[in-house]
Nucleic acid binder design. Structure first.
Lengths: 347, 347
DNA sequence: GAGATTATTTGGAACGTTCCAAATTTTGTC
DNA sequence: GACAAAATTTGGAACGTTCCAAATAATCTC
């Protein structure tokens, strides 16, 4: 009693009841008499008892732990996502294992295995590039619900929650066309990813609808990072028929594009229109404020967590695919209508 | 055998050995014969056995779980920190509970309690503002090592790892003085925090060493965010004797200061020198690139994790206070020497 | 106040692992 | 091939909880 941790049996002795009764109290069962409940609770506080969830799980096989693995926590988009998940998970009385894979498939496999050993009862994952659809089979086979977020994995028979990339890119193009642009570039992103394909699809579709013929040269794929954005501008500006606007793969790229423009003495939002994708937290306060497609990563995190919890509680592993609506947020980086700009430049 | 999960006993039966032997194999004990080991391992793979760490912990009272709670994961400084922790924790075979408190003391208390119930064997915490030194007493009493990072809590008898705020601010001032500045403002941060006090202390000390008298008006405390930086510039520019340079509480503030300067048609790094603090990932690629005090949050995360693991393994809870060295990284935002700038402006 | 109800409490037996002490097998020695 | 020594294997008994069936206590009914 002096050394080891305080257990339910210690409480039982001290409160002069059986361990079963203590257990009932712990679970807030209505079966126990108010007086005994009070007595037990008093002893619990007095002895500084701490509940051992591990032992409980062993018996009930139902942990209050979910796992979340993201491919790049360094990217504030994913950090926001994690925060969103954390919020709902926390208030549902769960706790989350969080791991960062840094886009490494091996690491991802390791952490998922480790989480499984630790008895997670659900998993949210933003998969590393190149993740195989079969990688989550063991989880689902064991009845552990999995929700894939952000990046879809074609063929995986698990739930997914991705943003409407097609509609987003499409809206960005429409916006630029509305401002008078016709040479619109698509900048950044790795070409062999599902997200890239979806966004590029939206871009092409909107161009077609506007009667603008698609020009291969205007899509410049680079790393989806700030540096990638800088590189993209560099390549695009080598063209004979230069673009006057760009829809970027994501906000990081968009910021890089702004940097690159400035390095060429072009002011984003004045001399060149740029639209981002994601609406990260800095997008609003940047100069110029970034016109972008808002996907509300924190909200996505919350929805993903809600979906996961729903599946955990319902006990059915039926896959559900949600595409999350996005909306265009017009700020300064896309500038005024082209005509106006032209007039200003002349005067 | 058909329904429930595969257990060590199932393996034992299938491999025709005892459960003890299986356990030995699982732990990689040298006591077991190579042939049996191979046989058991084969069966393990074949049956798709997954180790139940919960059950193991119950017996050994030694989990492979650490907790990490941060006050604001949305801030990329802390996200980086978490990634650093994750790296070493992962490769040591541990897994981490991560929770975000969003500066809420109540939430912090909740998650720490929850983590404790889940049996963490160590905790790394970047405490929410206003955390009481006594809050971690129960943990340490139970022999669970705690490492406080980033923000020190005076009086807490636990290990801590903070960056050398005094030296950092001091170096920033020296750098600016070296460039010829004499009206140097200190911008951003909440005045009632330990970190603020330390950085302001370094600032004052360096001013004194340079023979510049400290002017109260030049320290403008605001929220430690981008918006706070904008606000700070606004306030500082109301002064009769305006500053020509600023050392900022952190990089977020510094970016805000740049925004604010631009809004006033001043170019950071040309018309006004700004130095940040933290060296977040965007500092390098921003325009202008931010001169800042590099604290390498990811490195801090790694060191914190190493310290924690050391304490977990050694079994002693002796508190250790580490202050992590910082270094000045000169980029463009602090500009050229004042004279030069002046000459350029005239020409 | 006896019998029937209802409310409360309670000992085991799990859960899946590790540990211990002891049993068994193998190897070595002469 | 008998004995000792070393190597390997093995049954229980934990660990701290929850669950079940059953026991006990309290209340009601006439």
């Amino acid at each position: 009693m002096s050394k080891g941790r305080v257990t339910v049996i210690d409480i039982a002795h001290a409160a002069d009841v059986s361990k079963s009764t203590v257990s009932l109290v712990l679970q807030g069962s209505p079966l126990v008499n108010e007086a005994t409940r009070a007595k037990v609770n008093a002893v619990i506080r007095e002895l500084g008892y701490v509940y051992n969830r591990g032992a409980a799980n062993l018996r009930q096989a139902k942990s209050k732990i979910v796992g979340i693995v993201v491919n790049d926590l360094t990217n504030s988009f994913f950090a926001e996502l994690a925060v969103g998940v954390d919020m709902v998970v926390q208030s549902a009385g769960y706790v989350q294992f969080l791991s960062n894979t840094g886009e490494s498939i091996d690491r991802q496999r390791e952490v998922v295995a480790s989480m499984r050993e630790h008895g997670i009862s659900g998993l949210i994952v933003s998969p590393a590039r190149g993740t195989d659809a079969a990688d989550f089979k063991p989880l689902t086979n064991a009845g552990i619900p999995v929700v894939i977020v952000v990046r879809n994995i074609p063929g995986a028979k698990v739930s997914s929650l991705v943003s409407d990339n097609f509609a987003g890119a499409s809206a960005a193009v429409e916006h630029l066309v509305g401002l008078g642009h016709r040479r619109i570039s698509f900048m950044g992103g790795f070409a062999n990813t599902a997200v890239f394909a979806e966004r590029l699809g939206g871009y092409r579709d909107a161009l077609a609808k506007a009667g603008i013929t698609f020009d291969d040269e205007l899509v410049v794929a680079t790393a989806p990072s700030r540096a990638g954005g800088v590189e993209a501008v560099g390549r695009a500006m080598l063209l004979a028929d230069k673009p006057t606007a760009a829809v970027c793969f994501n906000d990081a790229v968009a910021f890089g594009v702004c940097d690159g423009l400035r390095a060429r003495r072009l002011e984003p939002g004045v001399d060149f229109a740029v639209v981002g994708f994601d609406d990260v937290i800095e997008a609003e306060s940047a100069v110029p404020a970034l016109t972008t497609i808002s996907v509300d990563p924190q909200g996505m995190g919350r929805r993903a967590a809600q979906l996961l919890l729903k599946q955990i509680n319902s006990g059915k592993v039926e896959a559900e695919a949600i595409v999350s609506a996005v909306r265009l947020v017009v700020r300064q980086s896309s500038g005024l209508a082209l005509d106006t700009t032209a007039r200003r430049a002349v005067s």
